[in-house]
Design a protein around this nucleic acid. Structure first.
Lengths: 132, 132
DNA sequence: CTTCTACTTAGATGGCCTTCTATTCAGGAG
DNA sequence: CTCCTGAATAGAAGGCCATCTAAGTAGAAG
């Protein structure tokens, strides 16, 4: 028994992903699988106050405003960020639950170095994959 | 100070991703951002013995063998899996470090519920993003 | 050596995706 | 009201990607 068959690894390595689950996750992953969108998500998430104005984002890239707007829409459609207009500017913020869902997919892979497992149930949302 | 500016969230929300880092991560994410490849990765990772023969994978999909082979090559090129031929069959296995790298990107996002942070340094590889 | 099976490579096709320019919408200022 | 700025939408062009069929390679078996 090389693998204990209990819960040992990342959800993705625990049991085969159902077809529909994979399709749903792929939508989110596809939104993040772009250098520009990945940086946008990172810039929004790391911005002071947890939110960033579009005007803070456009200057960083050699892209036109409509292109940035398009990428933001992709992220928003995938449920990763949310936008709100306040006066002249539009502010975007990360939706933590969505990001956590991606993290939980790959996160706790014990791998070749089986850690002492000292933080079993701390209130994480590791298994909340299906109730999308 | 709404955000402590210390290490609080997922790496992606801690500081803006560098351009090159985002490009490298996007390659890996793009490999995973496909329903078929996501299921392939899951099937390989969850297979008994930690490895799966190609013949075990082809039957699950309504796709031709060359298409499956193509997807496996994408996953292998991205560094997510590794393949080995033993006799007649070819066996693929997951590369845990690569999957961990994706997990670490999104994983420990405290989000709206700041947990007591009881598992600061357990030996995780959370910060091993840049030394790709 | 020939043949069969498992898998990969080569090349082509259709669709999706990123980016642009041009236009439109939303709010504030004069 | 009119003008200006910030942002989104519309539509088009070009490239990339998933999939297929056809052909090639690797190993076992007769």
């Amino acid at each position: 028994m090389t693998v204990p068959t209990g819960q040992c690894c990342a959800p993705i390595a625990r049991e085969p992903l159902a077809e529909q689950t994979a399709a749903e996750l792929a939508v989110m992953l596809k939104a993040v699988a772009d250098p520009v969108r990945l940086r946008l998500l990172s810039m929004i998430g790391s911005h002071a106050g947890g939110e960033a104005c579009v005007c803070d984002l456009t200057g960083t890239f050699d892209l036109t405003a409509p292109t940035i707007s398009h990428h933001l829409k992709v992220l928003r459609t995938a449920g990763l960020i949310d936008g709100e207009r306040r006066g002249t500017w539009v502010y975007y913020r990360i939706i933590p639950e969505a990001v956590n869902k991606l993290g939980a997919l790959f996160a706790p892979l014990a791998g070749s170095v089986p850690e002492p497992a000292s933080q079993a149930a701390v209130g994480r949302t590791e298994l909340e994959l299906l109730p999308a």
